[in-house]
Amino acid sequence: MSVSSASSRRVLERGPSGWLAAPALFFFLLFAIIPLAGVFFLSFTKWDGLGEIKLDGFSSWTTVLTDPVTGNALWVTAKIMFFSFIVQAPISLLLGVFTSASQKYRAVLAVLYFVPLLLSSAAVAIAYKALLDPNFGLGPGLGIPFLAQDWLGNSDLVLFVVVFVIAWQFVPFHTLIYQGGVRQIPASLYEAAQIDGAGRVQQFFAITLPQLKYTIITSSTLMVVGSLAYFDLVFVLTGGGPGYSTRLLPLHMYLTGFKANDMGAASALGVILVVIGLALALILQRLGGKNRNASQLEGA
């Protein structure tokens, strides 16, 4: 903050009225905060979605916490989060660097890279379901037996298929973020490095990576927290199967609530989801805390 702005603030005294924030606050309270309280409340009730909601103490919690499927759902969620991150992060970083350069062919490629951004998860899932069909899909089409595996039916493979399809859908978005980040790196840094005789790889590690620190944090946060919301893609692609092998937590919550009609247990799962989201965000914010301060300082 500069001195002049501080003094002028004193002159202005109050700033704009808080009422300007009221409409946003209203919507947010009504459809986010109240439901948030509601999900806590419902986790202590019994409700089959049809009849009355009855208070039921901790019985939903006992059900959820003793059910091995819950543990499995957490484990599947963790695996998908982990693998999605280690697959998506390097690819999007490298593609971001790749597309930020100015060669014509790269610009053309970039146009095509971003097409998956336009598809809904439902569309992507349906397309891949057809594509991965062992009898009528990609494998027999290309005549490569390796590709004619039972991709969605083999419980050892399916998780990686899901990770791949998620990457296919979301790498473009993160590529875009990195592309923007790379383009903001001052050219002078690279020119200096070239004079020093640094090679391409050296430049990447010495300049690009450190310069992208905050972009990496932003993208990683979106990736990790976002992986708690991979509901629709997996729902349409595998329905959580085969068995429980891709039944990740949000999907487990949905199926418990709207298929097995145990809204109490589903709400308990919702609470677990909320807690995990908060914990992750706190951890990531600690890592990226400097980012926010920095951007706020720069603003003045």
């Binding site: 948030l36 999900v39 927290v225 949000p250 919550m253 909320v274 908060l278 965000a281």
Partner: peptide, 8 residues
């Protein structure tokens, strides 16, 4: 920070 879909 909260996966708001948990409140569905």
């Amino acid at each position: 920070a909260i996966p708001l879909h948990a409140t569905i």
